[in-house]
Amino acid sequence: MAASSLIHPSSSPLLLRRRALLVRRRPAVAPIRALSVPAALAQDDLKKLAAVRAVEYVSSGMVLGLGTGSTAAFVVAEIGALLSSGKLSDIVGVPTSKRTYEQALSLGIPLSTLDAHPRIDLAIDGADEVDPDLNLVKGRGGALLREKMVEAASDKFVVVADETKLVTGLGGSGLAMPVEVVQFCWKYNQIRLQELFEGEGCEAKLRLDGNGKPYVTDNSNYIVDLYFKTPIKDATAAGKEISSFEGVVEHGLFLDMATAVIIAGKDGVTVTAK
C-alpha cells in the first residue's frame, strides 16, 4: 500500500490537523527607533551595523547567550573587542554552537554552559526570517536546537538582521525552514513532514553537506528542510504538529521569543520591540 494512503485517509487525525492550520493574527508591533546609514552598503556591512547596535544592550557582569551564523559572528566579534578594550568586563558567554564556541574562545570571551548558568541575562542572535509580529525562522546554519535552548533561557532575546530577512509570513522567503530529526528512520519523518504540509505546497528535503552526505548537527542529528511555496498559515499550530512527531528533536520556528529585533537596511537601523 502507498505511504500516502497509510498516512492520509480522509478521516485521519493528520488531515484534520492540516485543516486546522488557519490564519491567526497577533497584535502589531511598531518600530521605536531608526538611525540613518550610508547608501549602498553591502549586506555584510548592514549585518555589522545591526550587530554593533545590538551590543549596546550588553552591560558588564552579564551572562550572554551567543548566537550562531554570519550576523551573530559580528556580535561576538564586537563583544570580544569591547572586552579587550576594557569597556566591558565580567562577561560570561554561553555559545549556541561549536563554531561560536571556537570564535568566542579565540577572542578571549569567558565561556560557560546552560548547566552552570540556567538563567541568562541576554541572548543576541541572527534570524533567517522575521515576520511583522517578531516571530522568526532560525536554524539554516544548523544550530537551531542549542539556539532555542539558550534563547528560551534568556530574560531578553535581541535579534539582529538585515532587511532581506523580513517576510510578511514565516516560510515566505521560499528558503529552508529546518527541522532537526534523529538519524534513526529519518526518512520516515521526512515523509510525515511532507504529508503534513501537503496543502501548503511544501517540499521536505534532507539537508546534505558539501560532500553530498547527510548534514550532521552538533547534536549528531540530521536536518530535514521544509520549503514552502506560500507562507505558513498558522505557525503556532504548525510548530505544535511538527513537535508532536516522534523522532523530531526541534524545529526552526521561534515564536513569541524575541524581545526586540534590530534591522539594518537602506533606510537606516530600525529597532522594533514588544
Results as ranks from 00 to 15, higher is better:
217 T>W: 07
260 A>V: 07
259 T>K: 11
166 L>R: 07
197 F>A: 00
31 P>M: 00
239 G>S: 15
158 V>Y: 13
132 P>M: 13
187 K>P: 11
227 Y>W: 07
75 V>M: 07
224 V>S: 01
178 P>N: 04
150 V>E: 00
34 A>L: 14
201 G>N: 07
255 L>S: 09
73 A>I: 05
51 A>T: 11
183 Q>H: 09
50 A>R: 03
57 Y>D: 14
80 G>E: 04
206 L>Q: 05
241 E>T: 05
109 I>S: 01
110 P>N: 10
126 G>M: 05
66 L>C: 10
68 T>A: 02
42 A>L: 15
151 E>D: 14
76 V>L: 06
86 G>H: 08
253 L>A: 02
44 D>L: 15
108 G>S: 06
189 N>A: 04
120 I>S: 05
209 D>T: 06
235 A>H: 04
23 V>E: 14
69 G>Q: 03
17 R>F: 15
114 L>E: 08
141 G>T: 05
15 L>D: 02
148 K>F: 05
250 E>H: 11
78 E>M: 03
160 V>P: 02
158 V>D: 03
60 S>Y: 11
172 G>V: 01
119 R>N: 13
36 S>E: 15
238 A>T: 03
52 V>G: 07
27 P>T: 10
228 F>T: 01
19 R>H: 14
221 N>M: 07
109 I>N: 00
26 R>I: 10
126 G>V: 01
269 V>D: 00
147 E>Q: 12
207 R>A: 05
174 G>P: 12
242 I>Y: 04
138 K>N: 12
184 F>C: 13
203 E>L: 03
259 T>A: 13
64 L>H: 08
208 L>T: 13
176 A>D: 05
116 A>V: 12
139 G>K: 02
80 G>K: 01
138 K>V: 03
206 L>Y: 09
47 K>I: 12
199 G>S: 15
41 L>W: 13
215 Y>K: 10
157 F>R: 00
3 A>Q: 15
100 T>D: 01
209 D>H: 05
180 E>P: 07
204 A>R: 00
215 Y>T: 06
195 E>R: 02
12 S>M: 09
114 L>R: 00
102 E>I: 00
126 G>H: 03
113 T>S: 14
241 E>Q: 09
127 A>G: 08
131 D>L: 00
109 I>G: 02
270 T>F: 13
100 T>H: 03
35 L>S: 10
47 K>T: 06
234 D>R: 02
213 K>I: 04
245 F>H: 04
101 Y>D: 08
86 G>R: 09
69 G>F: 06
271 V>F: 03
223 I>R: 07
72 A>P: 02
39 A>K: 14
99 R>P: 09
67 G>E: 01
24 R>E: 11
210 G>Q: 04
227 Y>S: 06
102 E>S: 11
75 V>R: 09
203 E>S: 09
154 S>M: 06
168 T>F: 08
268 G>Y: 14
234 D>G: 07
34 A>Q: 12
53 R>V: 14
148 K>E: 03
113 T>V: 08
220 S>H: 12
259 T>N: 10
191 I>H: 03
231 P>A: 06
95 P>R: 00
132 P>S: 12
159 V>L: 04
120 I>L: 12
95 P>M: 08
131 D>T: 01
227 Y>V: 06
12 S>V: 12
248 V>R: 00
19 R>G: 11
183 Q>W: 12
181 V>W: 01
83 L>D: 00
106 S>M: 10
137 V>W: 10
122 L>K: 01
134 L>C: 12
152 A>D: 06
